Simulated assay, not measured.
Amino acid sequence: MHGLKTVRKNNNEIEEHWVIYNNRRYLMHSSPNSMNYCQITKEFGSGYVQQLLVCPFAQIKDFEFTFCDSLCGGANYTMPRLVLYFCLNGELVLEEKGITVDPSHFLAFGATDLRRVLFQPNFRHRVITVEIYPDKLRDFSSGAYLFAALRSLQAPNKAFSTHKLSPAMKTILYQLLHCPNHDPVRTLYMEGKLLECMSVYLNETICQQEPMLSRWPNLSRQDIKSFYEAKQILDQNFVSPPTLAGLSKLICLNEFKLKQGFKQLFGQTVHTYVVNKRLELAKQLFEEKNITVGEAASYIGYSNASYFALAFRKKFGINPSEYRSHKE
């Protein structure tokens, strides 16, 4: 049996893909001229691998290939990630898992290894992979959800799962492959589509998983979506946030349910969440800019510098003036 394995070197070196045949390694393709495009060597078939997007928290790859013989593929991942496999043409068979992925479904997994993926010989395959690094998404409103998703996927019985490919996801994949823009606008467009892909995946898949909902049996799917919407509103407006009454109207829930559900879901009250976001920003300002304590307080929405100093010390255990002087 042939074997296909992917080896990723550091960012400054060439990425290589190779096959194992009779316990020997053969170079399948490399990228000496471009890190974004690689051709498969004629010995094994025809096709290419290209990177559509590489950013700090994710990457997207486009595979198109036809192998001359049956190949068994695989990949090893060292950094925790959520991987989405979209098979637009042909079939992928995970032999050890008994899973088949065709164009009507996609594969999601959070395991560290992808082994024994079978490809049909003499058949054109088209695969799009989306790899997301949840630990680098802390500043995004969907980051907490991605952490929960990855934890659930890494459970022994949830490491690999298939999901129906919806019309919304099909549209995003088409737009990724047919980007109308050129650099540098192209990168911005692709990052936007990546975030849209993540949003659709979370909305259609993670929100509907009963194991996730069982952690909050008194909350409906719609409630959870509303609380994440509230969190997103606060993330975008924490310097000058809406009142609790105003926020409850924006997400169409009453104040009591908002207060109780937000704390249950995120482990802190709405007020505490806003204060922590403000103080984290103040800390960042002291590290990156030469500003006074009063300027920092005003920047993050405090009208009284003394109140700001008390809150800063309570959270970080040090006065803002001392923290500022240590960073100079």
Rank of each mutant, 00 (worst) to 15 (best):
M1V: 14
V7L: 10
N11F: 14
N12Q: 12
I14M: 15
I14K: 09
E15F: 06
E15A: 08
I20R: 15
R24Q: 15
L27W: 10
L27V: 11
H29M: 12
S34F: 05
N36F: 15
C38V: 15
I40D: 05
T41Q: 15
K42G: 12
E43H: 12
V49L: 15
A58F: 05
F63R: 05
F63E: 06
F63G: 01
E64A: 11
G73E: 07
A75D: 11
M79G: 09
M79A: 14
M79K: 15
P80C: 05
V83G: 03
V83A: 09
Y85K: 12
Y85A: 08
Y85W: 14
F86M: 07
E91H: 10
K97D: 05
K97S: 07
G98D: 06
V101P: 02
D102Q: 09
P103K: 00
F106N: 00
F106S: 02
L107A: 04
A108H: 03
A111C: 07
A111L: 06
V117N: 06
V117F: 03
L118T: 09
V127N: 02
I128Q: 01
E131G: 10
Y133Q: 05
P134A: 06
D139L: 11
F140G: 01
S142D: 11
G143C: 03
L146H: 08
L153C: 06
L153R: 08
A155Q: 15
S161R: 14
M169Q: 07
T171C: 09
L173P: 01
Y174K: 10
L188K: 10
E191D: 10
K193G: 02
M198T: 12
M198E: 09
Y201M: 06
Y201W: 07
I206A: 11
P217N: 01
I224S: 01
F227E: 00
K231I: 04
I233E: 03
D235A: 04
Q236P: 00
F238M: 01
P242T: 00
G246L: 08
I251Q: 01
I251R: 02
L253R: 09
F256P: 04
K257S: 12
L258D: 03
F262Y: 08
K263N: 11
G267K: 05
T269I: 07
Y273F: 14
V274G: 04
R278M: 02
E280M: 07
E280A: 08
K283S: 10
E287M: 14
N290A: 15
I291G: 00
G294Y: 00
A296N: 01
A297S: 06
G301A: 04
S303Q: 12
S306F: 10
F308S: 00
A309C: 07
A309M: 04
F316G: 00
